[in-house]
Simulated scan of single mutants.
Amino acid sequence: MDKMKKKYFQLKSKIKLYIKINWIKTIYINFKMLSLDQAKKLPIIVFGKCSFKNLEGKIVLEGESFFGRIGIGQKYQIFEKEKGISEFRIAGELRFQGRAQFGTDCRVFVGENAIFTLGDMASIGGDSSLICTQKISLGRFCRMGSETFITDSNFHAMKNTATGEIHPKSFEICLGNYNFIATRVTIMGKTKTPDFCTVASCSLINKNFSEFGENILIGGVPAKLLKQNLKRDWEGEKQSLEHYLKIQ
């Protein structure tokens, strides 16, 4: 009887999942951007409304291709109601080194010749925006809260009126492994964080924090070192985190 109940609930869960999938957009993004061998396994799953405005670039999947490896519009946070404004523009290269999640209402722009790389189990929370014009990389288990804004560009060139020097607009962003970015954080060019770095809510990050080593808490506007020898309990959460976010 217990086995029958288990199978029943597994089947019920799978039916609910399949109903939530946007099958038209899922099939489109896979067969548009991936090789036939990869695409037929549907590694990229799209939930809800999502607009693909420009797919002239490429998506690179490193390693094994399997169903549900990448979730777009995935409802894995507390608030699940979506506004229906997810938008992806990929003119450059979007590279996945493992599994990844994009929450509801995410907006992602990867410009021409730009490279955006996500490590295994990296994620971008709901209602977040990412603009990559040069190079942005997220480490393994680099997880961002909702309403994050990350951009490697200042968008408009600035000029030194005394020397006539034109300052560059774009600077690389590199976030380490096992980073936890809280809600409403702004991440700008030149940002570099070490492994096991935690960023407090409503912070602005725009410089290199790797000199402080691992297990640090940073925060503020602009961000500064707040505490050392502090990290999220990844070991205690890892098993439940992987299970909860898995598309199966």
Rank of each mutant, 00 (worst) to 15 (best):
E112R: 09
E112A: 05
E112N: 12
N113H: 13
A114S: 12
I115V: 15
F116P: 13
F116E: 12
G119T: 11
D120A: 08
M121V: 12
M121S: 14
S123H: 01
I124L: 11
G125M: 12
G126L: 13
D127S: 10
S128G: 14
L130N: 03
I131T: 15
I131H: 13
T133Q: 12
Q134R: 14
I136H: 01
S137G: 14
L138K: 02
G139Q: 10
G139S: 05
R140H: 10
F141R: 04
F141Y: 07
G145F: 14
G145S: 15
G145T: 14
S146F: 08
S146Y: 11
E147C: 11
E147A: 11
T148S: 12
T151L: 04
D152P: 01
D152G: 05
D152T: 06
D152H: 05
N154E: 14
F155M: 06
H156N: 06
H156Q: 04
H156T: 10
H156D: 01
M158H: 03
T161E: 03
T161V: 10
T161G: 01
A162N: 12
A162E: 14
T163N: 02
G164C: 04
G164A: 06
I166L: 14
I166C: 08
H167S: 07
S170G: 01
E172H: 03
E172V: 02
I173N: 06
I173T: 05
I173Y: 00
C174M: 06
G176M: 04
